[in-house]
Design a protein around this nucleic acid. Structure first.
Lengths: 170, 170
DNA sequence: GGTGGATAGTTTAGAGATCAACTACCCGCG
DNA sequence: CGCGGGTAGTTGATCTCTAAACTATCCACC
């Protein structure tokens, strides 16, 4: 058989690593697809809106700075602005100027936002349970958490902006 | 402190599960963000286009049916149509009617597509290594693969279309 | 042999995301 | 003071994605 695959070179991964990688990709893709479908079809909040409200629900005064929110949700500022604008027009959140830094904007969950979150929560939680938590042994789920925490750390380093190949200029 | 969080009820998860879940979410978000950034900034193929070409590169004749491709990449048919249309206009792939089923369309990787894949592969692989593989112990990476394979399976069941709450209407 | 229901893929309009400006403000330093 | 560079957030044009409708084909069955 002629060598067809581009990646079977030694800069790539072993067979076993390749398999793990594929499983990872497929697993995350199918999972967000399934969870997103639950939100789209049975809940009034998209997964992204839900996550945003969860963050706010845990913040003091139900309020966070836009940039903190963006960082926490791993969203670009632009995307957050648009998302919050939409949610604001639905009455789920409110924005007001931050005191102390006139550039800043605080985002606060409204009562309607809290209500929407409370309505959506059971369905969301049930779906997460059903699709992921219950499909794994308890200790597998814990392991997944620990592993992805390491990945998150590593991603922060090489992720942020560009470099990575350009590396340590200056 | 007043109870602020919506989710701290007994239909939700334990503290520990909650932590695992958050780590999972943050890890996947940061990872795709970081890997996507590498593609956007230093490669000529987006992560999605790259994955599509990888699939084709492993298929007999470098060719796959649109629907097979869609299933393999966990993409809606509509999205695949759009993506392939864009890639076709760049000369990376070609479509032609499938023989034997006149509804079907085959998607084939062109020489230019293969060339683009080969150019992009080293950067892609290096990024995957750097951001994920090297950040984990070998056995952690293998474990991640096994766990996500289970999640993928589980997602297939409850995912596909709707139901889940509606369940077995017949 | 033709009818009804599935399957394959495309199309279109509208929602959402991205990227590159752009405004406004903060702060350190000469 | 005031200049320069950084941070906070928004805007608007453009691109991509989604959802629903639509065309065409296939196939099982009467």
């Amino acid at each position: 058989m002629a060598v067809q695959t581009v990646e079977q070179q030694d800069l790539w991964l072993t067979e076993e690593q390749q398999g793990s990688w594929r499983h990872y990709l497929e697993g995350t893709a199918r999972f967000v697809e399934a969870l997103g479908a639950v939100h789209d079809r049975t809940l009034d909040l998209s997964l992204g809106e839900y996550s945003l409200l969860v963050q706010l629900s845990e913040a003091p005064e139900l309020t966070m700075r836009m940039s903190t929110l963006a960082d926490g949700l791993v969203l670009s500022r632009s995307r957050l602005t648009h998302t919050v604008a939409r949610m604001e027009s639905r009455g789920l959140v409110e924005r007001r100027a931050a005191e102390g830094d006139r550039r800043g904007v605080n985002c606060t969950m409204t009562d309607a936002g809290r209500a929407a979150l409370e309505v959506a929560a059971p369905g969301h939680v049930a779906a997460v349970r059903r699709i992921m938590v219950d499909a794994l042994e308890p200790e597998e789920f814990a392991t997944l958490g620990r592993i992805m925490a390491k990945v998150a750390e590593s991603s922060k380093l090489s992720g942020g902006t560009e470099e990575g190949l350009t590396a340590h200029c200056d």
